[in-house]
């Protein structure tokens, strides 16, 4: 059994979307290095409840790195120090006994804080409604093998499609830009034959919605790619740009 750790946590507390928040400092002890970061927060919350305080609210669900619900800026890094890892898959062995850890919510105008570390990411859903789909009603589909798709394209589309919509790209970008998120969906469908008919409207619609939500612009710092827990490449942003240029040239509006 590896030795346990004691940690100091500096956590953002905010009662509701309109109230002012503040950092509060807590101490946790007997943390095992095999614990996940969220399990460490579970320990903190059990402690707070027993002491008659309100537990820290944070979003989480699958705890296996795929649902995209967990977030957290940990010591100034989205999902913490480990690359290609969500907070739920971050283990305490990445920290040292005696460390102080600063825990903040995602910060972006389109991601308002709801409580403590929970933010509202519904802006992402609204962007999706503006073109993140193929218009095909149930029952209309031809045979799955009717259209051949080169493996290379299928693989690239898959890689773009693995985006979990967690918002780390926005959180890590100095401009709070959602370009990586949007580019992932635009790329997936631009790479597949099924996405071609709506190619033009899709990129225009999604970019317009992204802008109206108040996300910042991309300045190609690549921080999003580094923070992305599933490794979505900025190559997709270049493709998004190409799609946008193309849509501007050939589009009717």
């Amino acid at each position: 059994m590896s030795p346990t750790m004691s940690l100091t946590l500096k956590v953002w507390r905010q009662a509701n979307p309109t109230s002012a928040g503040e950092f509060r400092t807590y101490k946790v002890h007997s943390i095992s290095p095999d614990q996940s970061f969220l399990e460490m927060l579970d320990v903190l919350n059990e402690q707070l409840i027993i002491n008659g305080e309100e537990p820290v609210a944070f979003d989480h669900d699958c705890r296996e790195g795929i649902c995209g619900m967990c977030s957290l800026m940990i010591n100034g890094q989205a999902h913490g120090p480990e690359r290609k890892t969500t907070t739920c898959q971050l283990h305490m062995r990445k920290f040292k006994d005696g460390d102080t850890i600063v825990i903040e919510p995602w910060r972006a105008k389109p991601f308002p804080v709801l409580r403590d570390l929970v933010v509202d990411r519904s802006a992402f859903d609204r962007i999706m409604t503006k073109g993140g789909y193929v218009t095909v009603n149930t029952g209309n589909a031809p045979d799955g093998n009717a259209i051949l798709i080169p493996k290379e394209n299928a693989d690239k589309a898959f890689e773009a499609a693995t985006c979990i919509g967690c918002g780390a790209c926005v959180a890590a970008c100095k401009n709070a830009s959602a370009m990586l998120f949007v580019s992932a969906k635009v790329s997936q469908l631009a790479l597949l034959p099924q996405g071609q008919p709506e190619r033009t409207q899709r990129v225009q619609g999604m970019v317009a919605q992204m802008d109206s939500e108040g996300f910042g612009g991309c300045t190609n710092t690549n921080e999003c790619e580094a923070a992305c827990p599933v490794g979505i490449s900025v190559e997709n942003i270049a493709r998004l740009n190409r799609e946008y240029i193309r849509a501007t040239v050939v589009g009717l509006t």
């Binding site: 500096k10 953002w12 950092f23 800026m73 010591n75 100034g76 890094q77 989205a78 120090p81 690359r83 600063v102 903040e104 910060r107 972006a108 105008k109 389109p110 890590a172 100095k174 401009n175 709070a176 830009s177 108040g214 996300f215 910042g216 921080e223 580094a226 923070a227």
Partner: peptide, 12 residues
Amino acid sequence: ARPIGYEMRQSK
């Protein structure tokens, strides 16, 4: 786009 900044920031 980010009216409230971070207390701490580190590049990945």
